[in-house]
């Protein structure tokens, strides 16, 4: 009797092996699911959390950062360094240095959540590569924004010109130190750029919502 059970077990076992082979054969007939990475890439999800980057204000072509340092305080791994300068004729400070130590960043996104002026967001960049470690240890986000702003200025010349004009006007107003300048500045828009005459706007503060900016542009 036990011989029969042993035989039956052997046959059942053999059958299970054949089932397994049938399944792998079936899977082998299905198309490949690999994305050939360097040739094709995946599109990142909208909410993808890459490293942080400064937001380019789509109207002024500048950063909205006011260097309030809330992001620095929210960061669990102390990887952000933000320096701001107070320019003349502005109510708020504007960012002059924004670096990320990507070697210690844990991509948690606390900084983005902490930001009161929506000045930083997640980049969709996931294949950041460098041969130099220092490039990650001091990732100059402001410089990246400047590069982005240049492209933006070429694409939207009239917006860039308007922003530059507004900035120039503001700078002029600031130098004139007229009390009226303060009111124009408070109706606000672009902050004073260090070199207001450059066609491509250098990043400066835009601490206000886009609506306010539109006003400045139309005036």
């Amino acid at each position: 009797m036990s011989l029969l059970t042993a035989l039956r077990e052997t046959v059942a076992g053999f059958k299970s092996l054949l089932t397994g082979m049938r399944i792998t054969a079936r899977e082998a007939a299905k198309p490949s699911i690999t994305v050939q990475y360097p040739h094709d890439t995946l599109k990142m999800a909208d909410r993808f959390r890459g490293h942080v980057k400064l937001v380019l204000d789509p109207v002024t072509g500048k950063s909205r950062c006011t260097s309030c340092n809330l992001c620095v305080r929210a960061c669990p791994s102390d990887c952000l360094t933000v320096e701001g300068i107070k320019r003349e004729g502005e109510k708020k400070k504007s960012v002059s240095e924004y670096t990320l130590d990507f070697t210690t960043c844990s991509l948690c996104g606390s900084c983005v959540e902490a930001c009161p002026s929506d000045a930083i967001e997640y980049s969709k960049d996931y294949n950041v590569v460098s041969l130099d470690r220092a490039e990650f240890a001091r990732m100059d986000l402001l410089k990246k924004l400047e590069a982005e702003a240049k492209v933006w200025a070429e694409k939207n010349p009239e917006l860039a010109a308007a922003a530059a004009a507004a900035a120039a006007a503001q700078a002029a107003a600031a130098t004139a130190k007229a009390p009226a300048a303060a009111t124009t500045a408070s109706a606000p828009g672009a902050g004073a750029a260090p070199v207001a005459t450059t066609p491509a706007p250098t990043p400066a503060v835009a601490p206000v919502p886009a609506a306010g900016v539109t006003e400045t542009r139309t005036t």
Partner: peptide, 29 residues
Amino acid sequence: FTPILYAFDDREKILDLLEALCGARLTYC
């Protein structure tokens, strides 16, 4: 060897869902 790749194929679907939801594939937070 083969099962892990089948499992990862299915797991990828979960990770894609969670990535679209919270932006990370593993350390969701």
